[in-house]
Design a protein around this nucleic acid. Structure first.
Length: 109
DNA sequence: TGAATGACTTCGG
DNA sequence: CCCGAAGCCATTC
């Protein structure tokens, strides 16, 4: 439960490192952390991180660029609005031009 | 202890 | 790309 666990901590830190107007996927994060099979746990970490604050969880989507976590945000379109406010075009819960906006920690870091 | 759950991913059709 | 099924693993009941 301590923040020294590493996994949650790393997920939080990495989420904070996501550049403005860019997005990444749970799988990419999990892979970068060496937990390639625990993509779901990244989502779980995000669930906790949103309470933590300062975590741009809206920049993390599934591998299709779909806003799979929008239901966990307040309201019904907060996540989409946050992305659009950063210049990310979102249509029907999906990030447009996803491949171009995709931020891969393995490559970028 | 064991079964169910989930902000995912990959594979086959 | 859509659909179904299996794998994955921390958390919860």
């Amino acid at each position: 439960m301590s923040s020294s666990d590493g996994f949650f901590y790393k997920v939080h830190e990495l989420a904070k490192l996501i550049p403005y107007g860019r997005v990444t996927s749970y799988g990419a994060i999990a892979r970068y952390l060496g937990a390639s099979g625990s993509a779901r746990m990244v989502g779980w970490a995000m669930n906790a991180s949103d309470k933590n604050g300062d975590i741009p969880a809206h920049r993390v989507v599934n591998r299709l660029g779909l806003l799979s976590g929008k239901h966990h945000f307040e309201g019904t379109n907060l996540m989409q609005q946050l992305l659009e406010s950063e210049g990310v075009e979102v249509i029907d819960y999906k990030v447009q031009n996803f491949e171009k906006l995709f931020w891969d920690p393995m490559k970028e870091l």
